[in-house]
């Protein structure tokens, strides 16, 4: 078969040899083809990594879809304008989640208002004003990594002792927000720092050689360039704060009335879900409804952040 082809080809070539630019030697029919045969399908063993990767990806996506699907399936019927705007009745079996949404928003607000400036400031200090290998930088970084891994219940106990009792804030939205701020700070600082470090050093050199001050360099060049990194940290932080239950039980409390001030106790969404499904018989429907609201909120925040990061990256 191969021999025949070679012979045919060499005949074709010799026929129109006047138009050939390249000197091509006619394939000798005796010598074997120098090219390795290309088999139509790769050997089965090399498919294994591909299959594994695909299987894992499918598994992850399927799990996510299942959870979300389940929540939507059970919770979609409950969701209505009523549900979002009325107070819970009968320990939450009936009625809506308005005060809980407000309390969640307030707790998150307190948490971010404290942790964002503190976190970004610390990140700037670590990334721009401390050498990478100084003992101070290493100490702070190591402590943050340990802190990021501390279980939330421990933060809850700490918040209860320190904010609620020592500072006398009691069970309040303020205590809860501050405790959450302590929890998300390590995440915020580390990702903001990574974001700043990822900014090419060329910008700093160029700015310095044009006589820009460090403040201008930071505000006009480094922070804008680090925004996508900051957003990643922010989303992770908000995710952790919104999902938090254990730490809030000890600090912001259970009360499901509409909070009047930051010193009032307030029930966060995650606690409401926990309470309805564990402590209130017949509360499952509303628990699913609240869970759906929580998931949708998180997805919205995630999506918005991704959108902003994307816009930002394409701006320049």
């Amino acid at each position: 078969m191969a021999k025949k082809k070679g012979v045919q080809k060499s005949e074709v070539r010799s026929q129109k040899s006047e138009v050939n630019f390249l000197p091509c030697s006619p394939a000798s029919p005796a010598s074997p083809s120098p090219h390795l045969p290309i088999s139509p399908s790769p050997p089965p063993l090399s498919l294994l990594p591909t299959i594994t990767v695909w299987a894992i990806a499918l598994l992850v996506t399927a799990t996510f879809a299942w959870i979300v699907g389940d929540i939507i399936w059970h919770g979609a019927g409950t969701i209505s304008w009523e549900f979002l705007t009325t107070a819970p009745k009968n320990s939450g079996r009936e009625g809506g989640i308005a005060p809980i949404l407000v309390a969640t928003g307030l707790i998150l607000g307190v948490c971010l208002a404290v942790s964002l400036p503190l976190g970004i400031g610390t990140a700037i200090l670590l990334a721009e004003f401390t050498p990478t290998d100084s003992w101070f930088g290493r100490l702070v970084r190591r402590s943050l990594d340990v802190l990021a891994g501390v279980p939330s219940i421990v933060f809850g106990l700490f918040g209860n002792v320190f904010f609620a009792r020592t500072l006398g804030l009691g069970f309040s939205i303020l205590s809860g927000g501050l405790t959450l701020a302590c929890m998300v700070l390590p995440i915020l600082i580390r990702s903001a720092e990574e974001g700043l470090r990822a900014v090419p050093n060329d910008y700093r050199l160029a700015a310095a050689s044009l006589g820009l001050s460090r403040t201008t360099t930071l505000w006009q060049l480094l922070l804008p360039a680090a925004v996508p990194g900051l957003l990643v940290g922010l989303v992770l932080g908000i995710g952790r704060a919104m999902a938090e239950t254990a730490a809030l039980i000890f600090t912001s409390g259970y009360v499901d009335r509409m909070p009047q001030s930051l010193f009032d106790s307030g029930r966060a969404l995650s606690i409401h879900i926990f309470d309805l499904s564990m402590n209130v018989s017949g509360g499952d429907t509303n628990a699913y409804g609240s869970a759906l609201v929580l998931v949708v909120l998180l997805l919205l925040i995630n999506g918005t952040a991704a959108q902003i990061a994307d816009r930002w990256l394409h701006k320049f």
Binding site: D202, Y203, L205, A206, S209, L210, L221, P224, F316
Partner: peptide
């Protein structure tokens, strides 16, 4: 003022 070997415009307009 120094103009470096590698062009390094800022990520601005």
């Amino acid at each position: 003022s120094l103009i470096s070997q590698k062009p390094n415009p800022f990520p601005l307009s």
